[in-house]
């Protein structure tokens, strides 16, 4: 976790078009933002473009940052909006995310999966098979270590929805693991 005071100072300096401040902000957040976006849009070229747009927006409109949330949360919020827009645009242009997910679901049958030695890898594969909504909230909570309030702000959903969505994401993950031959005994 970065020093929030420092992040805010960087934003103030970026508002004054300080390139070294932008460089420092990129060093701290660019890879995380890119990873977050890629797990939503699932295409590297699109993720690169969206992540660049996020930081371009920061460069051009750093003055709009009101400081109500941490800089990291603000960046992920902007990234989420842009990633979802890119995904929507792509769906309109005939690429169907659900169809792609279904294709992935047709992967290994339980017998083949059981042969996989690495249980952790199976877990990773099952997380990747979750819907975009479920995968996104799992990433925000576990990888980005966001609180319930922060997830609510990034996804623009009520606090209770954050809790239930995470709960159902975990339930769905258990179902996928079970289908892959791993019974976790929950739920």
């Amino acid at each position: 976790m970065h020093d929030q005071v420092d992040d805010r100072q960087l934003i103030t300096r970026i508002a004054g078009h300080d390139q070294s401040a932008l460089r420092a902000l990129l060093g701290r957040h660019q890879l995380r933002v890119y990873r977050f976006v890629l797990r939503i849009v699932r295409r590297e070229a699109v993720a690169e473009e969206v992540a660049n747009e996020v930081f371009l927006e920061v460069w051009k409109h750093a003055g709009n940052y009101e400081g109500r949330s941490s800089v990291g949360t603000w960046l992920l919020s902007v990234a989420h909006n842009r990633a979802v827009s890119a995904l929507r645009k792509r769906r309109e242009e005939s690429w169907d995310e659900d169809a792609a997910s279904n294709l992935e679901d047709e992967g290994d049958n339980p017998e083949v999966s059981l042969q996989k030695v690495n249980k952790a890898e199976q877990m990773r594969e099952c997380i990747a098979k979750l819907s975009t909504e479920h995968r996104t909230i799992i990433d925000l909570v576990y990888y980005h270590e966001k609180s319930i309030n922060e997830v609510s702000e990034i996804l623009d959903i009520p606090l209770n929805t954050v809790k239930t969505r995470m709960f159902y994401a975990r339930k769905k993950l258990s179902e996928l693991l079970q289908a892959a031959g791993i019974d976790r005994g929950w739920p």
């Binding site: 990129l26 890119y34 990873r35 797990r39 993720a47 992540a51 952790a120 990773r124 799992i138």
Partner: peptide, 16 residues
């Protein structure tokens, strides 16, 4: 598993 899945992602990122 979530952390490992994210950290496996590498990227060529744009400079400032």
């Amino acid at each position: 598993a979530t952390v490992a899945g994210n950290e496996a992602i590498r990227a060529r990122l744009a400079s400032a």
